[in-house]
Simulated assay, not measured.
Amino acid sequence: MKSKLVRNERLKMSATFFNNLAVAAFATGAILPILSMTAATLWVADPKVILPFLLGSAVGVILHAFAIYQLGSLEE
C-alpha cells in the first residue's frame, strides 16, 4: 500500500495537470477570439467569437473545478 505522502503528491500533480488544461482552454477559447476581433466587429453579435468564448470559458471552469475537487481528497 502506498503512503499518504505519495498519494497526496500524485493527487497534487494530477490537479496541477487539470488546472493547466483549464488555463489552456480558457486562453485559447476565451481570450484569443476576443483579441483577434477587429474594431468593426461587435463580439456579442458575432457567433464566430461568442461561441468559442463561451465554450472555452465553460471548459476552463469545469477543469478547474475538477482540479479543486481532486485536492479535496488529500489526507493528513
Rank of each mutant, 00 (worst) to 15 (best):
G60W: 05
M37E: 13
S14A: 15
L63M: 10
F18V: 07
G56I: 01
D46C: 00
M1N: 07
L74H: 09
E9K: 08
T16F: 11
F53E: 00
L74M: 09
G56A: 02
F18Q: 02
S73F: 11
L55R: 14
I50A: 10
Q70K: 10
S57D: 07
V6E: 15
L42I: 11
F26D: 04
V59K: 05
A30L: 14
F17V: 06
Q70A: 08
L71H: 08
V49H: 11
L51S: 06
K12H: 05
F18D: 03
A65H: 11
L51P: 00
I68W: 11
P52N: 00
F18G: 01
G56V: 03
K12D: 02
F53V: 14
V44H: 13
L63S: 06
A40P: 01
L21I: 06
I62V: 14
N20H: 07
H64T: 13
T28K: 08
A67Q: 05
D46E: 09
Y69E: 13
G72K: 08
V44W: 06
S57L: 15
F66E: 00
W43S: 04
N20A: 08
I50L: 14
Y69H: 13
T41A: 04
F18W: 09
K48R: 11
A65P: 05
G29W: 08
L55K: 15
A65D: 13
S14R: 01
L42V: 11
P47L: 02
K48P: 00
T16W: 12
G60E: 03
F53H: 03
L21H: 07
Y69N: 12
F17W: 09
K12Q: 13
K2G: 11
G56S: 03
A15F: 03
Y69T: 13
T16S: 12
F66Q: 03
A45R: 06
G29T: 05
A27K: 09
P52I: 02
K4P: 15
G60N: 04
A40W: 11
L35E: 01
R10T: 03
T41K: 10
N19A: 14
L5P: 01
F26V: 05
V59P: 06
A65T: 13
Q70H: 06
V59T: 11
G29I: 05
I50K: 00
V61D: 04
L71T: 04
L32Y: 04
L5G: 01
T38K: 12
G56M: 02
R10Y: 10
V61T: 09
L54E: 13
L21T: 02
I68M: 08
A15N: 02
L5E: 05
S3F: 01
Q70R: 10
